[in-house]
Amino acid sequence: MPDILAGLGLAPGIVHWMVLTAALFAVGLYGILTRRSAVGVLMAVELLLNSAALSFVVFNHFRMPALVDGQVMAVFVIAVAAAEVVVGMAVFVALYRVSHTVDLNRLDRLKNDEVKP
């Protein structure tokens, strides 16, 4: 059994892991391009950040297993993501309070070229 899996080149090596991160990143990309709600877009961005953090840990594990540089970076990525979400969500809540939507398609106030009195 192990010989068959390994013989087919299926044992997860660095390439398999990196293809996985690319797939997760691509799914997030799709979400960013199709989501209409800003909260949905930010969730897709979290997918991207998560896949990038995963890729740091993958490289850490395969290229330099005795060190933890990639894991340290992943810890920072998680912390930065938290900060980003805090500010992002604060802005969303504030926007919802004044315009009752966070739908990116309906947010076109800034495009209106009306003359101010």
Binding site: G13, I14, V15, M18, F59, H61, F62, R63, M64, P65, A66
Partner: peptide, 9 residues
Amino acid sequence: FGAAADAAP
């Protein structure tokens, strides 16, 4: 990506 290093974590 270079040979996977073999050191123990």
